[in-house]
Every structure is written in structure tokens, then in C-alpha cells.
Design a protein around this nucleic acid. Structure first.
Lengths: 122, 122
DNA sequence: CTGTATCCTCCAAGATACTG
DNA sequence: CAGTATCTTGGAGGATACAG
């Protein structure tokens, strides 16, 4: 009986920290939209339109969180009313690659998970 | 001013569903340990040892959820006391690839996020 | 050894309303 | 247009105890 090779991995490991961020309800969607528009900036209202169901508050909060993390930039056009433009930083853009891989997996396989779940627990 | 290309993406998109699963506190860690031991099975207690801090209850709950999703298998050795062995299904193993990519990104770049966060909001 | 049940806490996130 | 403040709630997840 071989001993498991699984190393200790504390809840504070980098991956957990990352998932704590991109795992929040809207983060990955926002990054996706920004990546699709990249390198063009995207306005607050346009993000709202691109992400049906997101609340005003959560879009604002998530964008500020992303900006604090250095994943997005925020540019204010001091007009009246103001226009605020967001875009991915190089760091944010680099995250798109593994995120896209996850997206591809999800689009390919999520139905298998759903099917399995339905089959075993109706 | 170009129109954003961001398509509508409902909260029920495959990626959100996937993140709702692997984004839970312990799922990605469990998959990692199982992948490291693959194709050898891993026992409940060995998983507990490999994942410091996980509670009894959450390990059990998360494993059952993974099994219901078809990502892991559960094999009971009907001894007294019983031994329960878990391993990744082919589906679960296929998820390891994009997950590993995310892990690599996290290990490479999370410190930049932390640094940025500290720099801008101490 | 593995799993379940109970209780409790905390926080992500929605609704709503107000501001510059 | 964009952001903030307040209130509220559901559910994730911890502690603990018990069972087969």
C-alpha cells in the first residue's frame, strides 16, 4: 500500500488565494469581457450591458477589487457626467490564458457533470 | 469609439457553474492531491493528512459532491473498520490539466497581486 | 475509520436609495 | 454616469458529538 504523495497544502496556498478571487460570482465574467475587448477599454455601462444580471453594486465593487489587485486599470474621463473606462493590465491579460483553458474545459465537459449528477441523484 | 464586443454571458454559463464547484474552499486541493497520487487511490484519512486544516465534515461533503459530479470514484473496502478509497475519474483527471495551468499562474503571479494590493491599499 | 446530524457564525451578494 | 451606504438574507463552512 503506497504512501500518498500528496504534499501538505495549506488553505493559504497561491491557488486557493487565486480561487478566492476569481471564484467570486462575477470576477471571471468581467475578466472575460475585458479580454474580449482588449486592448480597447470598456466602460462601466458597457460592462453592465455585457453581463446581464450583475448588480450595480457588485460590478463597482468587483472592478475596484480587480483594480486593487492590479489586474485592471481604471481611467476616468472628467466630463459631466463622468465616463470611467476599464481595461486589463498585462498581469490581468496573462491570467486570461489559464482562465480561457478553464472556460474551454467547462464548455466541453460541464454537461457531463450535469448529466452525471442528474443520473445519480434525481 | 468602438462598441464593446462582450457578448451576453448569463450567470448560468458553464464557466460560472464550474467555478461554483471548484471555487469552493477545498475542492481544488482535493483534486490536486488525488491527481498527485493518480492512478493510486487515496484514502479518506490520507486526504485529511494531506490537507491540513480541512474539517472532517467538509472533506466528507466535498468528496461526496465530487463523486456526485462524476469527477471522483468512491470504493469501500467492507472491513471493520471500513476503508474508503477515492480516485479521479477520467473526467476528473481531464480537469487537472486546466487546473494545473491555473496553479502555475497562481504560483508565478499571486505575489504580484499581493504586492500591488499592499502598495495601493496598506 | 468514515460518515452524519446539529448548531452557530460570518460574509458574499441582492435590493434600494442617495450623491456628485 | 458612476459610486457609495444601509439593510437584509442564504448558504458555506467550522465545532462538536454521535453512529455503524
Amino acid at each position: 500500500m503506497p504512501t500518498p504523495r500528496g504534499d501538505a497544502m495549506s488553505p493559504q496556498c497561491p491557488t486557493r488565494q487565486l480561487l478566492d478571487r476569481i471564484g467570486t460570482k462575477w470576477t471571471s465574467l468581467i475578466i472575460k469581457v475585458l479580454a474580449e475587448n482588449h486592448p480597447t477599454e470598456t466602460r462601466f455601462t458597457d460592462l453592465r450591458r455585457a453581463i446581464p444580471g450583475i448588480s450595480h453594486k457588485m460590478l463597482s465593487a468587483t472592478l475596484h477589487s480587480l483594480t486593487a489587485d492590479g489586474l485592471t486599470t481604471r481611467r476616468v474621463e472628467p466630463t459631466i457626467p463622468p465616463k470611467v473606462h476599464y481595461s486589463l493590465t498585462p498581469l490581468g491579460l496573462s491570467l486570461e490564458t489559464p482562465l480561457a483553458a478553464l472556460r474551454t474545459w467547462a464548455e466541453t465537459h460541464m454537461h457531463e457533470i450535469d448529466t452525471h449528477r442528474r443520473y445519480t441523484s434525481p
